[in-house]
Design a protein around this nucleic acid. Structure first.
Lengths: 362, 362
DNA sequence: CTGTTAGCGCGTTCAA
DNA sequence: TTGAACGCGCTAACAG
């Protein structure tokens, strides 16, 4: 004897509630919506039935009826284990939540096929919008989504091959500034460690590095440039190779936090006094016992702005039909600033100044 | 003249495809399912129509028809910015993906109301299962979900008030071991820094700490116990207070990485030589220039096991109806081990040994 | 204030 | 090998 409650698959439906309360399903709908045109007594009966049956309305059926408004936004990132992306997820979530939207997070693992199928799945699930950090330059799946009137916002990379809003970090300027700082300290042989050229931010930051060198009249030297490292281990090895050159660089600029940490380890291991600068601030950067120049920026603002751009598009798409449709794509750039960490332990009161996003409760 | 393509809201439907291919919707369904009983010629026409219209089947309608199987699992965590949780999300995702399932991540921000509404929303969206790290002891919303035959698995905390599978870390044993290590080094005044008592892991780790003290014949002293810190800043202040006592502790045990990092900062700032031990391994722990004993465990395994337990339940729930229904709840415990970090910089080749989950591509 | 009708997009059932 | 009818659970539009 199966313990089916009211309906076949165990879930009480609106009709079950209606029957129990001796009303029509429409009345149930109205009560659930707090429609004032329902007699208090009736509403009470319905509410009682809802409670007794443990009824929850089926959002699937609901959003089918309501035609494409699931109240979900899709967020596509390459690696959630990177604090940058998990914070992005949080800040995006906080903004869209203000609009009553939930976030579905997809992780591509930097794989284009994953990314494509993920985006297609989100579209098939009728998310109301997508925020993506695309892995590469092939963004046809995103273009397709945008072409189907799904608002798309790119974070940290610009759209290629189609039009969409995006939020960027000042990759070029930040890298240039940091490199200039090294030059100003007298360095002339400055190495570069970064991600593969195909990664937009890596390429931009390399440009900034090169621009600073050129402006200072320092000839670029490919011997000092390594751009295939995505993990700290790879970065440490690449840095060690540079340090082992006959004429090693006296300073290193790293285009992201993985490379900075790897370079730090290589420098420590070698006991070298190579100067170090890098893109991205990170926790404990001030505690490494090495002078360190970092390019910092408000990564939470990046996520919030992405959320704002997206909700703006969603609003536009639904309210009007002609004018707002073709608002030109917006592009926001998050500014960067340089942060210097020293050899001495920082006072504890400085702790709160940098983002304390990593609160725990474990 | 609105540029509606085929259907009113811009989305081509199965019927649009059917019309264009001059077949019925049923044939379209069959082609999409690669049903061999369709004439190759017909199938080709349909595929062409699909391509030309850019048709994607509507997963919303599909899962409505298919009655509660959305292919989605919900993951509820308290703070995604904590690496522990973002890695949990990744490892859970990797396991459920093998079963063709996607993950919906919800962040509660440690707020019970958020958690409740999040879980209810997931249930209303008919996720096929839920993995949760509940914020507190009030788990009625999870119990309700479980009662409605939504498989629920708890991670890092046990269920209270209902039955469910769960994966735990050996909180008690790990904390006891670390404290014993401090005792073995001769320490007798050992402080404790941790999260609020309401947090299960915090309470268990305090128990482990206390058990070790008792076994060593050291009388517990509440003066040395602070358990309200959730962020590094709070932890640093609490640690500083302990260090400023007339008879300060000579060692500190911290029940999680936030407290360990905070304590580290306080010790550095004070220039003290207080010994430090803590629960959770974390990146750069080896680079702090302080001796450090950490309780490490395989956090990825925790997520994978949670995923396995959940998919196991989902399978059971759908295949049979009588026997497997009441399989007793399973409880897995992830073992811990102690890791020692020293004052000297570690060689770079040691880098790869600890999890390199934080690869970046930025 | 409440109920009836109709249909969102898809897939199952049964018939042709 | 293909199609027509029906319904999943819900709600907009119109009665009454």
């Amino acid at each position: 004897m199966p313990g089916a409650r009211e309906s076949k698959d165990g879930w009480p439906t609106q009709r079950d509630v209606a029957q129990r309360a001796a009303v029509s399903t429409m009345t149930v709908t109205r009560v659930l919506r707090d429609d004032p045109r329902v007699l208090p007594a009736t509403a009470e009966r319905v509410r009682a039935a809802v409670a007794e049956l443990g009824y929850r309305r089926n959002e699937i059926a609901r959003s089918l009826r309501l035609a494409s408004s699931t109240g979900l936004v899709g967020l596509v990132v390459t690696n959630l284990a990177n604090p940058f992306y998990s914070r992005l997820a949080l800040s995006v979530g906080s903004v869209v939540a203000e609009h009553g939207l939930k976030t579905v997070i997809g992780n591509t693992g930097q794989d284009l096929d994953n990314e494509r199928s993920l985006v297609e799945d989100l579209v098939a699930r009728r998310v109301d919008g997508i925020i993506a950090v695309p892995a590469g330059a092939d963004q046809r799946h995103l273009a397709a989504a945008a072409a189907q009137d799904v608002p798309v916002v790119l974070a940290s990379r610009p759209p290629v091959g189609f039009e969409a809003d995006c939020v960027l970090v000042d990759d070029f300027g930040g890298a240039r500034d940091a490199t200039e700082r090294l030059l100003a300290a007298g360095h002339r042989r400055i190495g570069f460690l970064g991600s593969p050229p195909a990664v937009y931010t890596g390429a931009e930051r390399l440009r900034g590095y090169a621009a600073a060198l050129e402006a200072a009249g320092v000839a670029p030297d490919d011997t000092y440039v390594r751009q295939e490292q995505q993990q700290t281990g790879e970065a440490a090895r690449a840095a060690a190779e540079l340090l082992a050159l006959p004429t090693p660089p006296t300073a290193l600029f790293c285009s992201n936090n993985r490379n900075t940490i790897g370079a730090f380890r290589a420098i420590s291991a070698a006991g070298a006094d190579t100067a170090l600068a890098g893109f991205d601030d990170f926790e404990l950067a001030d505690a490494l016992g090495l002078p360190l120049t970092l390019v910092a920026y408000d990564s939470d603002e990046l996520g919030r702005e992405a959320g704002r751009l997206l909700t703006g598009r969603m609003r536009a798409g639904s309210v009007r039909d002609e004018t707002a449709e073709d608002t030109p794509p917006r592009r926001t750039v998050i500014p960067t600033s340089l942060v210097e960490y020293g050899v001495l332990p920082q006072g504890i009161w400085q702790v709160g100044e940098r983002g304390e996003a990593g609160e725990t409760d474990r």
